[in-house]
Design a protein around this nucleic acid. Structure first.
Lengths: 343, 343
DNA sequence: TTGAAAGCGCTACCAT
DNA sequence: ATGGTAGCGCTTTCAA
């Protein structure tokens, strides 16, 4: 229950050596005679000593911790993100702090507060305002995850715009579909904003008129069900529903199927992410695969590298590639589209 | 980019006061004249000073941080858990550290290491071995989240066994169903283990023979799809599939629907959790609602209270109630079962 | 090889 | 009301 407050000093006293020697032994630094090392090791073992991280970090002038800031946790995308981030932090012996700002009013304050506890922070795009981001960057190494950087702040993201543009062209050109709907809220999420831009760009290139507005809903399955209700309420729905992520798409699929529609016969649906479920529903979902774990791991490593090499030049932004994954929900028969795109 | 290393000492020098005064002002403790307070505040403002958490924590002998240890992140359940935990930690100005042991071999070591960085740790049931749990409890306040405690370690959990027993009786008695299958892996997860126990208990009470083994799969939607494949492969499947959580149930539903089965006509499916999607699929899922956020928040508060009152008696374990939610996937027509159970 | 001692940034006690 | 200073637990010079 209570903290077993065993300190270096006590171990030193118990082993009859100096604290410096204890420190050397417990860190494996410097030269220590076998005799001393044994004495110290025995004491450490006997009293279950483990150096307190605070003292160590204070002396080292480094927290050995990384922060991850979310708007609010939801769905497989975020769990992947956390795990990817963690997988890169753990080998570097850095702990991971998380913070869900979740629309709290004092979230700026909390992010700034986090900056006093970590060596660097990855902020999910759209979570905090640019001024606060820049302010934050004066305190610790910052990287924007899934979004665009600002000033000295680098970013790690994927090519949302071109990927979505390509997917949209596939529907427009290869399947000859018209009257597409886009589901997702561009405002506040760089990812969605870029995907909406790619959706619009594809229309523009083909001199087609896109819908004036996206169907604005949040990013989870229930929101997709909601979107389906809105879109399919009065008989004349769109020919295809392009969703900002797979979760929404799965929700729309559930909604459409629940209404007795056949997919892709009556309605084409596409997603984004290539979440595990995308391949398993009927019909399997045409989507865009993005390397979420790699993305987060890259962000963590970028921070760790920057912290490890203080003098070095500002880190470059990273853009990871995506891959169009054509399955049956877009109307492709086997998984291979007319143009031979995707796999 | 670089840490703006502004320390108390510098602020003190710049404001022409002592570090003690700066500390008093920045903490709002003690008595400070308006004149001094202004001088210090101006300096703090001008140089963007924020006390480093390390120094503060070291002096206070408290980390102001809580740890959350998972086996591995997955699905809405865990995101709810994190957010619930966080919602209780943030008001107490405690940061949240997370660690996914994810079957890593050195995870014991990492959990112990975490103990040096936080004031208390909530461990998801089944994540670490009992010896390590007890060892951990000697270092910091520990609570088992969704599982049973051990020795001095309290737990926060729900009444899985009775809830699942009740749900199972509903199928067995009210719907007269026989030949039920249970999907989930009891080993390694106290939650699942208890639910399996409740499932068995219901059969025993009614002198019915339960299946010899559960269908062992993991806890996500894709695993449910997999389970459906296994169960429905050769025509003669069970009459009902009782799933360890909603995610699996949703997967089984997708798999069953994909095979052309009607639910609940040809196959009854039930879940556990009452995740948002449970109410939205067709047919809506009969399940057990558990207060996941509250559960995690209770765990966080338990730790915070224990840390705040060091001398106090060991905290008691907490069991939160669940609620049977009867919808259509069990065969109930409207949502109200024959016996008037549920809501 | 070993130990004494100076800090890391902060708070809090004790004088003034 | 204010300042000097000890010390939180640790690492790391610098001497011996």
């Amino acid at each position: 229950m209570g903290n077993s407050r065993v300190t270096v000093r006590e171990i030193a006293r118990l082993a009859g050596v100096s604290v410096a020697t204890v420190s050397r032994v417990s860190n494996g630094t410097g030269q220590v005679s076998e005799e001393m090392r044994r004495r110290v090791l025995d004491a450490i073992e006997e009293y279950g000593y483990r150096p307190d991280h605070l003292g160590r970090a204070l002396a080292a002038g480094r927290h050995g911790a990384l922060g991850l800031v979310f708007p609010g946790l939801s769905g497989p995308y975020f769990t992947e993100l956390i795990q990817g981030f963690e997988s890169a932090a753990v080998p570097a012996r850095a702990s991971v702090h998380i913070l869900c700002t979740h629309m709290r009013e004092d979230s700026d304050e909390q992010v700034l507060e986090m900056a006093r506890r970590v060596d660097g922070i990855a902020v999910i795009g759209g979570t905090i305002s640019e001024p606060v981001l820049l302010r934050l960057a004066e305190l610790v190494q910052v990287v924007v995850l899934a979004g665009q950087g600002a000033g000295p702040v680098p970013s790690v993201s994927v090519d949302n715009t071109s990927a979505m543009s390509r997917l949209t062209r596939h529907l427009l050109v290869d399947h000859g579909l018209r009257d597409l709907a886009f589901v997702g809220t561009p405002e506040g999420s760089p990812d969605v904003s870029e995907r909406w831009a790619g959706f619009l760009a594809a229309h523009r290139e083909l001199a087609l008129t896109p819908p004036a507005e996206p169907v604005r809903v949040a990013m989870q399955q229930p929101d997709g069900v909601l979107a389906a209700e809105r879109l399919l309420r009065d008989g004349a729905g769109p020919q295809a529903v392009v969703c900002a992520n797979d979760e929404i798409a799965l929700g729309v699929l559930v909604g459409a199927l629940g209404r007795g529609l056949r997919v892709p016969g009556d309605l084409v649906i596409t997603g984004f992410d290539d979440a595990p479920m995308a391949a398993l529903v009927s019909p399997p979902l045409t989507t865009v695969r993005q390397p979420v774990r790699d993305l987060a791991a890259a962000a963590a490593r970028l921070i760790l590298d920057a912290v490890a090499a203080p003098g070095a030049t500002a880190p470059d932004s990273i853009v990871l590639p995506t891959e169009l994954v054509v399955r049956r929900s877009c109307g492709c028969p086997t998984g291979t589209p007319p143009g031979g795109i995707g796999q």
